[in-house]
Design a protein around this nucleic acid. Structure first.
Lengths: 144, 144
DNA sequence: ACTATTTATTTGATATATCAAATAAATTAT
DNA sequence: ATAATTTATTTGATATATCAAATAAATAGT
């Protein structure tokens, strides 16, 4: 049985695609804001949309491990985008609130991210995108 | 303009798919070999197939940064899978050679990886896989 | 009320990702 | 032959991924 090189397997096209997108997206964000990452920006934006989200919920939406989310938030706090205090009603949870700097930054990066996504999908029809999504979700379910 | 949550965007289906696959693959490998990762195993297998590959070439095939490849090799050496010596003809390069332990492990993990890939793509037709690949490569080129 | 269980977050350890800079050998230009 | 450039690898710094274990608050069961 011949072993097939990663770069000839569709699974690694998946990997290449997400890596390419992330690199592209990160570069475009950092052209304008130099101390934030794509993941950090996404978290901020989600939180602005629904400030009641807790870290577990954020983790789920972002496909992150809880530990990873904790550390992304650590950095957002450290860089003054976010503050973290104990939740009033539930001592286990943390209340996250976006600082003025965070709000400003969201305004800046939101259109950049929207544009990145648009550019990445340029030339793909609505049906193609749906097909792509369906096939990928099939793979996800095969791996679970 | 409404911001769309990551989990509703096809780009994040790509991310979810590769994360799911990697987690699945890693779990299956570590059921049998407990001190090797998928990336390390892939590198070993590639190197066995073509022992003359240098780190830059390996990096390219694996879609890794050179620095990442250096560190993956560091661990393979540390764990006794590989040895690294200066290349005879070119003092900048390193000659990588697979140890007996490495050879044994390759024998074990190769079928596991092949099976992981097969399982991940279960139920996708040849045409669907080709479509998937084509669309992903379109995204890659859009991001470059 | 007390104990056991569950839920939310954090911490530690290790692997990988990414960029920039450093090192050093090989090659090219003059 | 020497200097400038290119090529191959490494190192440092920081961010993220993943698993396991720790912490601590909330809830359920008795």
């Amino acid at each position: 049985m011949e072993f097939i090189s990663p770069n000839k397997i569709v699974i690694y096209s998946i990997e290449l695609a997400i890596k390419s997108y992330r690199k592209f997206a990160q570069k475009n964000i950092q052209r304008t804001v130099d101390d934030i990452t794509l993941d950090q920006a996404l978290l901020l934006i989600l939180l602005q949309k629904d400030p009641s989200l807790n870290q577990m919920q954020l983790s789920k939406i972002l496909f992150k491990d809880y530990a990873a989310t904790t550390r992304i938030i650590d950095l957002l706090v450290k860089n003054g985008y976010l503050s973290r205090t104990v939740h009033q009603k539930d001592g286990r949870r943390k209340a996250l609130s976006i600082s003025p700097k965070g709000t400003e930054t969201i305004k800046t990066v939101k259109p950049i991210i929207a544009n990145n996504r648009k550019t990445a999908l340029d030339g793909l029809s609505k049906e193609e995108i749906e097909t792509l999504d369906r096939l990928l979700k099939k793979i996800v379910s095969n791996c679970n």
